[in-house]
């Protein structure tokens, strides 16, 4: 069974190569942020900071959190190069146990990360944690890879690993829970988040959520 530590170790191993292939913000995330403003932004599973950078344009201060120190180092360099070091902070932490107080953020993105938590218990805990740290009037975007993607024939949710090939040719397996849209709705309903809108785009489920 994939352990949380294994997921983190995977990313430490591939961090800089992975970061190079995650250059651009996703258009769906940019569309979500377009016109939204806040005081404190939060990017859960910020990786190399590509969305933290966009989020920082919308808020007074943006916090990026990731379980991979390697990717956080990439994010730090990226945000400094974009002249955003003063308005951003980075935290090494666990998406299922956020080291943030209640009401810490009023605008958040949680992109392509929830699906790397290997148990439903951890995924629900993480969604509850997001609800806990959001202010009552906050809005967040949560996205996961979905069975709707062309890559998959499955219609029911399933667990899988996808290999990452490093420049030298070694492969590192990456755990995913691929969500059916119905199961994503169910998990959101069972969490402390309220679902405002669910869209399928590019084979991913994008949920716009608020705290319940």
């Amino acid at each position: 069974m994939t352990e949380r530590r294994d997921v983190r170790a995977t990313y430490e191993e591939i961090a800089s190569h992975f970061s190079e292939t995650r250059e651009y913000a996703w258009p769906e995330v940019e569309a979500f942020l377009d016109g939204r403003r806040g005081r404190r932004g939060l990017d859960v599973g910020c990786g190399n900071g590509r969305h933290t950078e966009r989020l920082a344009d919308c808020v007074t201060h943006a916090v990026g959190l990731d379980a991979s120190r390697g990717l956080l180092d990439e994010a730090r360099a990226r945000l400094a190069a974009a002249d955003l070091a003063d308005r951003t902070s980075l935290l090494h932490g666990d998406a299922a146990a956020l080291p943030l107080r209640d009401d810490a953020a009023d605008l958040a993105v949680y992109v392509a990360t929830l699906h790397h938590l290997p148990t439903r218990t951890a995924r629900l805990a993480s969604l509850d944690e997001l609800a806990r740290v959001l202010t009552p009037d906050a809005t967040a975007l949560v996205s996961v890879w979905s069975t709707a993607h062309d890559t998959f024939d499955e219609t029911e949710s399933f667990d899988t690993t996808v290999d990452w090939t490093l420049p030298g040719g070694d492969t590192v397996p990456r755990y995913y829970h691929i969500y059916s849209p119905d199961d994503f709705r169910t998990d959101l309903a069972d969490s402390d988040l309220h679902l405002s809108d669910l869209e399928l785009s590019s084979g991913n489920c994008y949920a716009t959520v608020t705290p319940e």
Partner: peptide
């Protein structure tokens, strides 16, 4: 206890650490 390492606080729970 949680270390601040080269400017970034490591606030991972103990069971997620190396």
């Amino acid at each position: 206890t949680y270390p601040i390492e080269d400017g970034i606080p490591n606030l991972l729970p103990p069971d997620m650490r190396d």
